[in-house]
Design a protein around this nucleic acid. Sequence first.
DNA 1: ACCTCATTTGAATACTTGCTCAAATATAAT
DNA 2: ATTATATTTGAGCAAGTATTCAAATGAGGT
Lengths: 120, 120
Amino acid sequence: MPKRKKDVCEIFCYNKKLVDSLKREIIGRGEIAGLSSIFDVLSDQTRLKMIYLLSKRELCVCDLANVLNLSISAVSHQLRRLRDLRLVKFRSEGKMAFYSLEDSMVKDLFKSALSYVQKK
Amino acid sequence: MPKRKKDVCEIFCYNKKLVDSLKREIIGRGEIAGLSSIFDVLSDQTRLKMIYLLSKRELCVCDLANVLNLSISAVSHQLRRLRDLRLVKFRSEGKMAFYSLEDSMVKDLFKSALSYVQKK
DNA sequence: ACCTCATTTGAATACTTGCTCAAATATAAT
DNA sequence: ATTATATTTGAGCAAGTATTCAAATGAGGT
């Protein structure tokens, strides 16, 4: 709970009716948490690159690490985050694990954001 | 620069040809930085709420703070981040500053992500 | 059984970030 | 000018996070 003392303008700009109705509206939007977690997982360059690569072809952990110039461990940690959000799936073949995108929706999000960035 | 010693599987899973071509491909994608910064700014619940609210109506800093139950200062700091990425614009009227969305593309991104979240 | 190798996992560290507090601007009213 | 108010800004703190290191797991090969 943040405390606001005289930090708040209670007389002039505080539009109580509007503020109250907006408060109710915002509280109703439980999706905000879901939204932020999906954007959050996409906010890291390493994970973005992984998603980009995996959207094209299946790759093993080691090759991913080599392409990204990261340690195997770092890649594995990030893959776990992507797995937790069901963005990637994997199949194991012998000792190795091959990862690929779980579904194409992330790819679409990636694409719309890309066109947004390119227009700027 | 990360150092990889024997962490790397150089004999079996390292597919040099593929890795090299993917490396070139990834380096070519300078957009990754832009993508991550747009996703990053959207990865915070406070900023998401602000964007949602501002996409509907123009609001002053103080009312935003009241709706979000945050200090004026916190809101102002976040607004600056949104301004830096040109996601919001503002006009000042007297002592007050009224903010609104700069363009609708973010709104679209917001919407596609929302439908993604809701499908899960 | 043993050894090797690909991957995973937990702990520790260094870096990032959202908020608060205090001070600074800016604009309007007296 | 002085005062009051709406917003901005910079510094500092606390919480979160990406990476590394070391150890654990798991699956084959000998």
